[in-house]
Amino acid sequence: MAARTFTINDQLISAREGETILQAAREHGIFIPTLCYLDGVSAVGACRLCLVEIEGSRMLRPACVTPVVEEMVVRTDTERLREYRRMIIELLFAERNHICAVCVANGHCELQDLAIAVGMDHVRFDYAFPRCDVDISHPLFGIDHNRCVLCTRCVRVCDEVEGVHTWDVAGRGADARVITDMRQPWGEARTCTSCGKCVLACPTGAIFRRGATVGEMERDRNKIAYIVAAREQRW
C-alpha cells in the first residue's frame, strides 16, 4: 500500500493511503479531540471537534473524514481551533442539562473529559435548561435525553453493527431527539435485540444500564471496534 508523508504540527508523519488525518494522528500519539467518531462505525463528521487547519485551504476540515494527502501541512492546535473547540463544548453543556454530580457517567464521560481537555472551567453562554424526557421503559437500559449530545453513535452502531436500526433521529435543530423505532418507548421497540451495543457506544450518561447509579456507568468502548474487527476478519 502506498505511503503518504505529511506533517502535523511540524512533525513529519507517514500514513497509509486512504487513511484519515485522525487515524494517522492517533497512530503517532497526536491528540485530536473527537466526539461523534467511534472506531468500528462509519464517520459522519458531525460534532466538528476534530476540525484542523490545512495549509492552503480556507476551510477547516474534520480530521475524522479527511483523507491524508501527500505533503499536506496540518495544524491541530492553533489558538483559533482551541477557542472554537471550547465554544463547541460550552454550547453542548448549555444546550441540555448536564449535572455531572448526579450523572451515571460522572468520571467516565467523554464529554466531561473533553471539557477538561479544552480547559472549560465554566460555560460563558446562558444555559437553555430545556425540559427533557428520561425513558426507562426498557427492562435493561434507559435513555436520559438531558445528557444526549446527538452524536448518533447509538444510531450507527445499532444500524451498522447490530443491524437492526432501532435508533434514529427525529425532529430538527434544538428539537432533535434520538428515538427508538417509530418514536415508541424503548421498551416497546420491537426491533431492539437488547444487545447493549448502544450502551457501549454512548459517550455520555445518556444511555445507561438500569440500576447504575451516580458515576457507575463505566464502559469499554473498544469492544465495538473489537466486535467489528472480529467479524470482518472472521477470527
Binding site: 459522519v44 463528521g45 458531525a46 460534532c47 466538528r48 471537534l49 463547541i88 454550547l91 453542548l92 448549555a94 444546550e95 453562554f125 446562558d126 437553555a128 449530545v149 446527538l150 448518533t152 433521529v169 425532529g171 430538527r172 435543530g173 434544538a174 428539537d175 432533535a176
Partner: peptide, 25 residues
Amino acid sequence: CKDESCGKCIPCRAGTAQMLHMLDL
C-alpha cells in the same frame, strides 16, 4: 435558521439557538 437547522452538527444546532437567544437579550 434556528428553526431550519437540521441538528446534525453542534455549531449550527446549538449555535443558532444561542445566537437567537443573545439577539433577544
